[in-house]
Amino acid sequence: MRLVVVSAGLSVPSSTRLLADRLAAVAAADHAAGQPAAEVRVIELRDLAVDIAHTFTTGFPAPPLADAFAAVAGADGVIAVTPVFSASYSGLFKSFFDALSVTDEDALTGTPVLIGATGGTARHSLVLDHALRPLFAHLKAVVVPTGVYAASEDWGAEGLDARIERAAGELAALAAGLSTARAPRPARDSFEEVTPFAERLAALRPGG
Rank of each mutant, 00 (worst) to 15 (best):
A24M: 05
V26A: 12
A27G: 00
A27Q: 00
D30W: 04
H31P: 06
H31E: 13
A37F: 05
A38V: 05
A38F: 05
E39F: 06
V40S: 01
V42G: 02
I43F: 03
E44W: 03
L45Y: 06
D47K: 09
L48D: 05
A49S: 15
V50Y: 09
D51L: 10
I52T: 01
A53I: 01
A53M: 12
A53F: 08
F56Y: 11
T57F: 10
T58M: 14
T58L: 15
T58R: 15
T58P: 07
F60G: 12
P64W: 14
L65K: 01
A68Y: 08
A70W: 04
V72C: 07
A73M: 08
G74Y: 09
A75P: 11
D76E: 08
D76P: 06
D76T: 03
D76H: 11
G77T: 03
A80F: 07
A80W: 04
T82A: 03
F85K: 02
F85N: 07
S86A: 14
A87H: 09
S90F: 00
G91P: 12
F93S: 07
S95P: 07
F96H: 05
F97S: 01
D98M: 09
A99R: 01
L100C: 04
S101T: 15
S101G: 06
T103W: 15
D106I: 02
D106H: 13
D106Y: 11
A107C: 07
A107G: 05
T109R: 15
V113Q: 08
V113T: 00
L114Q: 08
G116Q: 00
G116D: 02
T118P: 02
G119I: 04
G119R: 10
G120W: 13
T121W: 11
H124W: 07
S125D: 00
L126W: 00
L126E: 02
L126Q: 00
L126T: 01
